[in-house]
Design a protein around this nucleic acid. Sequence first.
DNA 1: TTGACGAGTGAAATCGATTTCTGCCAGGGT
DNA 2: ACCCTGGCAGAAATCGATTTCACTCGTCAA
Lengths: 320, 320
Amino acid sequence: MATIYEVASMAGVSPSTVSRVLNGQNVSAEKAKRVREAAKALSFTPSRIARTLRLQTSEVIALVIPDIENPFFTAMARGVEDVAQAAGYSVVLCNSDEDHAKEARYLDIAIEAKMAGVILAAAGDNCDLSGLIERNRPVVAVDRSPHGFDIDAVMVDNRAGGRTATAALQSQGFSRIACITGPRDVETAVHRADGWRDAARTTGRVDERYLKYADFRVDGGNKAMRELLDMPEPPDAVFVANNLMGVGALQVLAQSGQLPPALGVAVFGDLPFAPIAPMAITVIPLPARRLGVTAANLLLDRINGDDQPPRTIVLRNQAA
Amino acid sequence: MATIYEVASMAGVSPSTVSRVLNGQNVSAEKAKRVREAAKALSFTPSRIARTLRLQTSEVIALVIPDIENPFFTAMARGVEDVAQAAGYSVVLCNSDEDHAKEARYLDIAIEAKMAGVILAAAGDNCDLSGLIERNRPVVAVDRSPHGFDIDAVMVDNRAGGRTATAALQSQGFSRIACITGPRDVETAVHRADGWRDAARTTGRVDERYLKYADFRVDGGNKAMRELLDMPEPPDAVFVANNLMGVGALQVLAQSGQLPPALGVAVFGDLPFAPIAPMAITVIPLPARRLGVTAANLLLDRINGDDQPPRTIVLRNQAA
DNA sequence: TTGACGAGTGAAATCGATTTCTGCCAGGGT
DNA sequence: ACCCTGGCAGAAATCGATTTCACTCGTCAA
């Protein structure tokens, strides 16, 4: 790996001049040409490490997501990636695995690898962003927004979505509608359940026994659905608050022969890789990719010095 | 961010001594204690950047995959991640998007970010690993092995899998069995098709018109399946060489009302998130996670100085 | 003609950790 | 009493880029 010193000596100039050529500062045409030739001859690439050490920042942004096996988050990642790449930034993807400790570790890494910024889909509401904020590193929350920090966020309208989904089941004639949502300490989960409650209230009282907190994964949905079916008076429909739990719930229903429309099902978020046309399932589609794109643009603005007060952008669900 | 100099001055010792304490070298107990206290008081974390610049290596490994939206690769990523984390390495996930240029870019980044090693599921057979190899950075190929470089590889037996899948369709009584495989320049795709040919040959001649090269994605499988159905004499069964194309093909079959067992389907690789029990579909399961675990272990061996000649490990498919 | 200004350039400092290189001191052998 | 060895610790060099500082020339205006 050639260094800037070798280029300098080959071109017969000082390292400073080489650096200036590389960064487009004032250098005489003659020397600039010699430097460029030398750089090409030695196939020189400046060391990012050295550059980062000197500049205390690097053209890398971290994207921290809670579940890399969830297509919702990978679609989001694609959105982030496309925008970042186009702006000359690399994205490193960090999988926190819904684990607060892992997440904290990754945030630390982002800090001290001097990354330019972080896009975070938090594992829970109580995550500590103080390190990043103290050091003035921009953070954008996406899908879930941590408590106690006033930062940019890109969200979907979870409550409205929950309401819409539940209302759809009601209009299909179901009345005992259960809800399977995510962990209590994830805002997104709570809001979706709130939407369910809103809708349920319009037709009568809300039966909280029909509300199950699970873990946003296939197994969680599976288990919760089984518990619901085992109740003395099982629900006649269910609103599932994310895609993977939807898969889990449908597995159970398929096994017990109660697939929709026998039992009503509404899912918040697109069912991943559904080969079969979603038979009688209500799906609230989520703009996953657009969430990523928007977050990335917001972050890039901040990186480029935008310092207006934090914004929260709520993307409309496409469904009515 | 506290530096080693601040810690040194707080503890009343030299920076060298601080470094020695941190790296477990001989330091008197008294000073070691003072250093540790100072480090804690300042909540000091050594700068990886500076460390990497000095040591010319970092505890990060790159995992380059061709499609982050394919659950096969994300499952593999989980395997890599778990092993790497346990060994104190961070994993950065790079999505090459089946694009040779992007892939090359990421390999460059890996080189000059001084990453400890690379695990690569290549976008095609002709990728240039010379940079990494010249610089003595270990590389492990996984799922697909690039031509012309003698490196460690972890593979599945693609040809045998293709044979098994096709044979299963034959034993179900199908005779005009088509094959949808991946791009021509991906070894994995070619081998799976070879397996199909092997099996087809046993019962007669191989009709190459029934072989479609697609792109390992949902849309590719979708399009290929449609073309097959539009043939004057359409196949009565199809072997699809990866999970996502399987989804695409099944979408088409669902639309045209020819779901299995009307038309035989065998898929190489687990169907992602199949909520419904795989009705009459033959699936060749793939040990995705184990592939990642094995590759990571191989890479860690190399990083730790293992220099025996390159190995190729072929994992058996679980199916008979 | 002189002073000011600006463009161009190299020397040297800087980022923060690691690693020689050296020197000091104590203990053991002759 | 003297030399040698070995443990400990600080000063300084190192990794490779960027940037400040200082200096040299011209050029232009007064």
